[in-house]
Design a protein around this nucleic acid. Structure first.
Length: 281
DNA sequence: CGGAGTGTTAGTCG
DNA sequence: CCGACTAACACTCC
C-alpha cells in the first residue's frame, strides 16, 4: 500500500477537498470493500480528516465517520470535473477513466465531486462506524514512528526483548506505527545495519542510528510527496518522488550509494529485503 | 502456461 | 506470551 508518508499525503489532500462538504451518495461496487451503514454517513457535515498509522479517519457530525485502510493496493482519487487532486497507489487506469475496473466504492459529495476508492487486490476497506471506534483504534495502535512519544528508550526496550531479525521489529505494526517494507529497508541501509541481525544484539549506538534513520526516511518520504514502487510520477503528475530516491529498496543489482557494492536481495519474513553486505553490519 | 512475487495485517497454531 | 506461518485477492513478471 501506500505507507505512512503516502497516507499522510492523501489525508492532507482529502482535508483540502472534503472539509465542510457532505456525502450525498455511496455506490458500493464490491461488497467486501465497504462495511457498515451507508445511511449513517449521508447528509452529515465532514468535520475532520485524520490519520494514525496507515488508517485514515473522516469524521462527520453526529459522532459518525469513516475509517479507511488502503492496505497493499488501495487508492483514493478525488475528482471534480477533470481535476484529479488526490492520488494513492499507482495504476494507470484511473488516469484515464473512473470508475475503473478496480474501483470498489464511489463516495459522492454535495459539491458534485466523487471520491473513488480503487483497490486491485481488495485487501483494503472503508468502514462506516461510530466515532467511538476511532477513539478505540487510536488507543490500540502504537505511536507512529515519527511521533514524539515513540522514544529511543522504548525502541531500545523492544529490541532488547526479542531475537527476531531487526527488520521484523522495525516493521512490526503492533509496536511501531507506519514503517512498511520500503522504509524499513531504507532505514536499515541508512543506519548501516544488517537487516538479519537479531534485534537484541544491537548496541546502544546502533539502536540510536536506526531510530533516527527510521524517522528520517519517513519524513523524507512525506516531504517528497510519498512514493510508489511503480510508475506513479510518469502518469499522474501529482507529486510523489520518493521512489526516485530509494536507498536500498528495489535496488538489487545496483551499486550501493555508499560503497558501490552491488545491493543484494534476500527474504526476511517472506518480504523482499535489500541490503549492502559490505556497509550494513 | 505455471509459479513466484507484490506497498499489509489479522488470525491461527504450536 | 512469542514466533512462524497463512489467508484475504488480483494482477504482473519471468
Amino acid at each position: 500500500m501506500p505507507e505512512l508518508p503516502e497516507v499522510e499525503i492523501i489525508a492532507i489532500g482529502l482535508r483540502r477537498v472534503l472539509l465542510g462538504r457532505k456525502f450525498v451518495d455511496v455506490e458500493v461496487l464490491r461488497g467486501r470493500s465497504f462495511q457498515g451503514s451507508i445511511e449513517a454517513i449521508l447528509g452529515r457535515n465532514i468535520d475532520e480528516v485524520k490519520r494514525k498509522g496507515k488508517v485514515i479517519w473522516i469524521g462527520l457530525s453526529g459522532n459518525r465517520g469513516l475509517l479507511i485502510h488502503l492496505k497493499m493496493t488501495g487508492q483514493l482519487v478525488w475528482r471534480k470535473k477533470k481535476a484529479t487532486v488526490v492520488g494513492g497507489h499507482p495504476t494507470l487506469d484511473w488516469i484515464n477513466q473512473l470508475p475503473s475496473k478496480h474501483t470498489r466504492v464511489i463516495l459522492k459529495t454535495d459539491d458534485g465531486a466523487c471520491l473513488f476508492f480503487n483497490d486491485l487486490r481488495v485487501f483494503g476497506w472503508i468502514k462506516s462506524v461510530d466515532e467511538s471506534e476511532w477513539v478505540k483504534l487510536q488507543k490500540k495502535l502504537p505511536p507512529d514512528v515519527i511521533d514524539e512519544d515513540f522514544s529511543l528508550g522504548s525502541f531500545g526496550s523492544m529490541a532488547s526483548k526479542t531475537k527476531k531479525a531487526i527488520k521484523l521489529l522495525v516493521m512490526d505494526s503492533d509496536k511501531i506505527g507506519g514503517v512498511g517494507n520500503i522504509y524499513a529497508n531504507d532505514a536499515l541501509w541508512l543506519a548501516k545495519i544488517n537487516p538479519k541481525r537479531m534485534a537484541n544484539t544491537l548496541s546502544g549506538q546502533e539502536l540510536k542510528r536506526l531510530y533516527e534513520s527510521m524517522k528520517e526516511v519517513i519524513e523524507k518520504g512525506i516531504s517528497m510527496g510519498g512514493a510508489s514502487a511503480r510508475n506513479y510520477v510518469d502518469t499522474s503528475g501529482l507529486g510523489g518522488s520518493y521512489q526516485n530516491h530509494f536507498l536500498s529498496y528495489q535496488q538489487d543489482g545496483k551499486p550501493c550509494g555508499r560503497c558501490g557494492t552491488l545491493i543484494r536481495k534476500i527474504k526476511i519474513g517472506g518480504r523482499g529485503t535489500f541490503w549492502c553486505e559490505v556497509c550494513q553490519k
